[in-house]
Computed example of a mutant assay.
Amino acid sequence: MKIDRRSKILEIISRKEIETQEELAKELRGEGFHVTQATVSRDIKNLQLIKVLSATGRYKYVANKEESKDAISKLVTLLSHTIISVENIDKIVVVRTITAAASTAAEAIDQLDLAEIAGTIAGDNTIFMLVRSNEMAVEIVKKISELVGR
């Protein structure tokens, strides 16, 4: 739930100018999340959001681009060290990992926030990803293979 909420926060701040924690909490509640201002405050800290002056003269929350680039780099490194193979079977992408790494790799894939992926399920050394279409599944295999250098 925390991952979903944080993904939703990033989505909200990318499409709206959110100036306060209370505005963000209100938006999240409108999306069906039951949150308090304290929860939003912790999420802002964990996501390392910063405030910048917008074109309208208001301050708004944005993702720290440098932190995001560094985080993505770390996720790609993690994936390149754990993924053995990637293939698609219709709308399902099957990712094989080294033993005991599937859960961590699935979390890293979830953090990449790829819109084509509806969800992931991880076992010990295998991840199943449900992708929104057969064509998107082919693209996801290509993206992940390129990311991990396979």
Rank of each mutant, 00 (worst) to 15 (best):
T99C: 06
V131Y: 01
E135H: 05
E139N: 05
N125H: 09
Q111D: 12
A102I: 07
E139Y: 09
I109R: 05
L112P: 00
F128Y: 08
A105V: 02
M136C: 02
A102Y: 11
T104L: 14
A105H: 05
T99R: 10
M136F: 02
E107T: 13
R132P: 01
V131H: 04
I109A: 02
V138D: 13
A102D: 06
I117T: 02
I109T: 04
I109H: 04
L112A: 03
S133E: 03
M129L: 14
A102M: 08
F128E: 03
A102W: 11
A118D: 13
A100H: 13
A102F: 07
D113S: 07
A106K: 11
L114Y: 13
L114E: 10
D113P: 01
E116I: 06
A108K: 03
D124Y: 11
D113V: 07
S103C: 01
A122T: 01
G119H: 07
I117W: 05
A122R: 00
A106G: 13
A108S: 07
N134L: 14
R132N: 12
L130G: 07
T120P: 01
D113T: 04
A101T: 02
I98L: 11
E116M: 09
A137Y: 08
A118L: 15
T99A: 13
A108G: 03
I121W: 10
M136W: 05
N134G: 11
A115D: 14
I140F: 10
L130N: 09
V141D: 00
A137N: 10
E135G: 01
I127S: 01
G123K: 11
L114P: 05
T126G: 03
N134S: 12
E139Q: 11
A115K: 14
L114N: 11
S133W: 11
D110H: 09
I121A: 05
Q111I: 04
E139T: 09
A101S: 09
N125L: 00
V131D: 08
N125P: 00
A100V: 04
N134Y: 02
A106T: 07
T99Y: 10
N134V: 14
A105I: 03
L114A: 10
L130P: 05
R132H: 14
A101K: 06
T120F: 00
I127F: 02
A105N: 04
Q111E: 14
R132E: 09
A137H: 04
L130I: 06
V131R: 00
T126C: 06
T126N: 09
D124W: 06
L130A: 08
E107A: 08
D110R: 15
M129N: 00
A122L: 03
F128S: 06
A100C: 13
T99W: 08
E116V: 08
E139S: 11
A102C: 10
A115T: 15
D110E: 15
L130Q: 13
A102H: 13
V138A: 15
D113L: 00
